[in-house]
């Protein structure tokens, strides 16, 4: 087994379950520092293309390079000329787009990592010249593939987290009480106003049986509970049925209650206080 094959194997084995057992955001710093050790590089970093004006250095070793900003234009041109394939410099060209980073180094590898939501490259530089034979190239391609996979997953995770935070913040700000009960029998969700109305300790995810129980209590406390039960029976005859602006006469409160199907995944209840 060559040095490069050993490196690829070690890298894969040490990062194979990272996406399941660790936070993906720490994958890049970990793996870059691992590769620095395995390759014996002087410089290792990720360069993120954030927009047309910004290529930011991240997870760098030496760490003082972190947060440096490079102009993406010339680097992108180089990558395009090489059809976004890995670039192997056994001897670093005298004039190159990484002049700021590769000063006094002899050899380097540039691994573009491009895919949905990911536009970055990995840069490794050595103080001594290096020969990149087929075994080296194969190893670096395996590593590139693994990075791409994790970066994409990390991007998706960030996207989901951002969307979730935004959605939750909006839902909790709405003055109407909202209760979602999923058709699967496992999922339920209430916003802050609904948690308050139903006297639940917290908003957010709630098991459907808990929601059914507290909504049942609310109905039983209503002065017009017989009418409500009757309308509810009609409502549950078909999953597509809806109910709009029904009055629930709760002592001290009149609620306007609507219930609508949500794209075959459940029902959304809306409660508005009338007085």
């Amino acid at each position: 087994m060559t040095r490069w094959e050993r490196t690829a194997l070690t890298f894969i084995s040490q990062t194979s379950d990272w996406d399941r057992n660790h936070d993906t955001s720490s994958f890049i710093p970990f793996s870059i520092s691992l590769l620095q050790e395995l390759f014996g590089t002087y410089i290792s970093l990720q360069l993120d293309f954030e927009d047309a004006y910004t290529a930011r250095v991240k997870a760098a070793s030496p760490s003082y390079l972190n947060e440096l900003i490079l102009n993406p234009g010339p680097i992108t041109t180089l990558l395009e000329q090489n059809h976004f394939k890995a670039i192997y410099w056994s001897h670093i060209p005298e004039k190159n787009v990484f002049d700021d980073l590769l000063q006094a180094l002899s050899s380097a590898v540039i691994l573009p990592v491009k895919g949905p939501g990911v536009n970055a490259l990995l840069l490794f530089g050595w103080s001594e010249p290096n020969t990149f034979d087929n075994s080296a190239k194969e190893c670096l391609e395996i590593i590139r593939g693994r990075f791409k996979e994790i970066l994409q997953q990390s991007h998706t995770q960030r996207l989901v987290n951002t969307t979730m935070s935004r959605f939750t913040a909006i839902m909790h700000t709405i003055p109407q009480a909202l209760v979602f009960i999923g058709n699967d029998g496992h999922s339920g969700w209430v916003n802050a106003a609904a948690a308050n109305l139903l006297q639940l300790n917290e908003s957010g995810e709630q098991p459907p049986h808990v929601l059914s129980a507290v909504m049942g209590q609310l109905i039983n406390s209503a002065e017009n509970k017989e009418i409500i039960h009757k309308e509810a029976l009609q409502l549950f005859i078909s999953p597509d049925n809806k109910m709009k602006d029904m009055k629930w006469e709760i002592p001290g409160n009149t609620l306007s209650v609507s219930c609508m199907p949500v794209e075959s995944i459940g029902r959304l209840w809306e409660f508005k206080k009338i007085n």
Binding site: E50, D51, Y53, T54, R56, E67, L68, I69
Partner: peptide
């Protein structure tokens, strides 16, 4: 993005 720190 570029000017989110003074490195830009």
């Amino acid at each position: 993005s570029r000017y989110s720190t003074i490195q830009g």
